[in-house]
Design a protein around this nucleic acid. Structure first.
Lengths: 227, 227
DNA sequence: TGTACATCAGTGAACGCGCGTTCACTGATGTAC
DNA sequence: TGTACATCAGTGAACGCGCGTTCACTGATGTAC
């Protein structure tokens, strides 16, 4: 009778996947609109799709599986955003800066998704999470590590290089700190985001390029450190 | 009849505060034992104390107020731990290192308390949190900023100093990143904590002491950077 | 010293709520003959 | 082309649960006379 009933058509035989997609989309929308993980219940999602709660179980084993699927979907977008941001980079260091910025921006644009993946305890003792590498966001981490490797590669040869993985962890942890702090305490009088990012990222240039060799574009302020 | 009934005595006229203390202690214990915020319900706390749920409302307006009190109590301990760790410091930079270490150690020792205060959204639109400075952990932050100020004070005079508050934020954010990441993803193959802390804190010495003036104790590795 | 009374810490029972999940089912869609 | 049947996407009703919170109360403790 109403718009709802005309909008929803029962899926054809082979089209079982259609509802699956609609469920994921509805969960995403609710997560964004309510900005409250606890508001995204099986019932609320079903309501949004225009379907009854049990029909969700035809497409997802349980709520955890659904939420995992939601996260995977969003973190594919994170990886995409970071790769896109890195596309026009001049050098690996610039790439790190751009990726860092994209990371924080993404987290702040999807705070509840971010919370779901990185701010809630994930333990391997839960049988659900079989493989730590199956955690959403793994591609993005891998690609970040690739950039770190590339940054190491352009360094002056012969100079000792810190552990690649540990460096990526440190970098990621810094980005995570900025992102999660702002998500949790949005009313704290944070300094401007760009300033804070700069404070974190600047030392990395020093770490990666101790000898000012490939620095093609001094960004104005570098003169100061020369006295 | 049982140990419970002999342990609990009804408070005397003026001793209403006694149950209040027991409730807080029980909440703390539950938070630590279960490591699960959602397991700490009014009912569970009452059970633990050996009292019925309604009697909690004689001492706390509602659950939020109770949890806030729990956090305040623990974060007084955080401040204490950081101040204690800083006590034997040689110089302000050493003090920053020690406080940083104490901060992360505290967070990892009280993951659920940490989550409650720093990993859950606190918005001022909630009438509950009237004043951001009333958020637990404020003293610790203030004291950290004091140390930053002291560190700035011992710098070579005449050298431009970054904003004190912004610097404290950056430092705190780094510590928060390390702490919250390890709490949320305990099974991730993190590099050793000390290595990661060193990676973060080292650049700050450079920031704070660009001229190697007061560096009394080169820690062996400094020779490397001199070639 | 003894009794009537006020205080108030803690109780017992119940409220309404929303949750995840289950079960047997319905009925439109597609297929075989 | 027409009919009987199998499939399976989605339904309706209900389950048991634990939650925060309320209400009128009980009965030990202390006080006034």
């Amino acid at each position: 009778m109403n718009a709802e009933s005309t909008a929803r058509h029962r899926a054809r035989r082979g089209e079982g996947e259609r509802l699956r997609g609609e469920i994921l989309a509805a969960a995403q929308a609710l997560l964004i609109e309510t900005a409250d993980t606890s508001a995204v219940s099986i019932r609320a999602i079903a309501d949004r799709v225009g379907v009854t709660p049990p029909s969700i179980y035809r497409h997802f084993a349980d709520k955890d599986a659904l939420m995992m699927a939601v996260c995977s979907q969003v973190f594919a977008q994170l990886d995409e955003a970071m790769e896109k941001a890195a596309a026009g980079a001049e050098d690996p260091f610039d790439e790190l800066c751009r990726k860092g910025h994209a990371y924080v921006a993404f987290g702040m644009a999807h705070p509840e998704h971010y919370r779901l993946v990185f701010m809630i305890k994930h333990t391997l003792t839960k049988p659900r999470t079989l493989d730590p590498s199956e955690l959403p966001g793994t591609e993005a981490f891998q690609h970040l590590q690739d950039t770190v490797r590339r940054a190491f590669d352009v360094r002056t040869p012969g100079v000792e290089v810190p552990d690649e993985f540990a460096t990526t962890c440190a970098l990621w942890t810094a980005l995570h700190g900025i992102t999660s702090a702002r998500i949790s305490l949005p009313d704290f009088p944070w300094p401007p985001l760009d300033d804070q990012l700069a404070l974190f990222v600047a030392p990395w240039r020093g770490l990666l390029e101790p000898h000012p060799v490939a620095t093609s574009k001094p960004h104005g302020k570098s003169a100061k450190s020369k006295r």
